[in-house]
Design a binder for these strands. Structure first.
Lengths: 245, 245
DNA sequence: CGGCACATTGACGTGCATCAAACCGTGTGG
DNA sequence: CCACACGGTTTGATGCACGTCAATGTGCCG
């Protein structure tokens, strides 16, 4: 695993999927300074309202961006898997108006904003690459606004599985049709804007129809095309050249 | 109105709300090249899947980012008002995975990507400012994912009015408690993930409770604090220093 | 004056929430 | 090695917010 070489190897991989980088660029990314930290499930990685000084690269585990409401209601607006720099936007907006939370045991690499900002200002190709990554995050949010606003439970879940499946495959954490997604049904409910009870019933009906099997974190998709159809999934929004579902 | 001086004056105004700019920076923004165009209601400004070569600054009118589904269902994931560069992210992601549509008669100023990219690469302060703007867009989407996923009709509408009200005030298009928002109830339904029928009934009940009056585009908010409470609105996510609701 | 969007109203259906209880797998301590 | 506790899953009964369908009302413009 190249992750042993440098903690940022996975991030470099990610950048190269969307941006053309020179060898020098790659060296710069691989030598980004930072510190590893680990978090237990449910621990906050970034607190709402907190001034942040570091960006958060996920090395291992699953984290989520969480919106919290007065009455304690929670909604997960983004899911982060290994290789995600889940906080890159904090470089230019350092007062967190969001919270990041570990869903499973999670290891991160905390990279000082100063280093990222300096790079983005001095190396145009990397500056553009960083900007592009945060932009894609925004596009993913926009897609979810549509899905949450207009689609029922089954479509929302199918869309979630499509998106996470592809991203897991790109992150070399399985294939799109077979991967681990170690979250509880309750957490899936927070992602889909539903209750865990309804998630449970929907998963059962999807399994019965041969669309997805989800068993305690193990995802299996018997027929990718069927899942894509159910989700009305078009991977274009992920902005990965050459990805056609 | 300084808008008469330069079509980008409103954009400069916008940038200065979140970023510190030098006089030179300001001159660069004011002299951005571009071409004015006008669109009728319902006309597409940017088509889904289209390679874009220009970013879109709204001069006058209201536009929206629209997600479309197979069966024709539509969801507006972002609303754009004068001064918004509603497409700035397209500079680094030029294949549109989104559509932009005029909701009212709209005048835009189309600015070539080349100019924006060159500036962002050569003038670090502006590069950061641009990046920051697209990042705030992302944060607004994230907020809406939460609202759509967990809150009922009344809260969604209250949140919409809070957000648009503040943004209108910042754009000098009225005050937060009194402004024009020239959209139909059908279009509001597309923003809130509801039907126009339900929007109608919800607006009536909100009016009865003295929360908002909406009459054919004229918005009046008798009690701002009451609206904020209804919406559970916290303006922090808009990233405007000194804005406390 | 007639047409055309848009707004409004009513009756009825449904997807999902809520409440409440049982079930199950796994780790813990006696 | 069993008892039990605990997080997560599953099931059932019931209620409500919002969708759907269908009609009528209303202001505006040619």
């Amino acid at each position: 695993m190249s992750e042993l070489t440098s903690p940022t190897a996975a991030f470099l991989d990610r950048l190269r999927q969307r941006s053309q980088l020179s060898e020098d660029d790659e060296k710069v990314v691989l030598s980004l300074p930072g510190r590893k930290k680990s978090f237990d499930p449910l621990q906050r990685i970034v607190d709402f309202g907190e001034p942040t000084t570091h960006a958060t690269l996920i090395i291992e585990g699953i984290a989520a961006r969480v919106e919290t409401f007065r009455d304690g209601d929670r909604e997960i607006s983004a899911v982060h898997i290994p290789g995600d720099m889940c906080d890159l936007h904090s470089v230019v907006v350092p007062i967190a108006s969001w919270g990041i939370e570990a869903l499973t045991r999670t290891t991160i690499y905390a990279i000082p904003h100063a280093a990222l900002l300096e790079i983005s200002r001095n190396i145009p190709s990397l500056g553009t690459a960083f900007w592009r990554e945060t932009t894609v995050d925004g596009t993913m949010f926009a897609k979810w606004v549509g899905v949450m606003g207009r689609r029922e439970a089954r479509v929302r879940l199918a869309h979630l599985f499509c998106e996470v499946g592809l991203r897991m495959e790109l992150a070399k954490r399985g294939t799109r049709t077979r991967f681990r997604f170690d979250v509880t049904q309750y957490q899936m409910a927070e992602m889909a804007g539903l209750t865990s009870i309804h998630i449970n019933r929907t998963l059962q009906s999807m399994r019965a129809d041969g669309i997805v099997k989800f068993d305690r974190g193990a995802v299996e998709i018997p027929d990718w095309q069927k899942l894509v159809d159910t989700a009305e999934f078009d991977p274009a929004y992920l902005q990965i050249p050459g990805l056609d579902g």
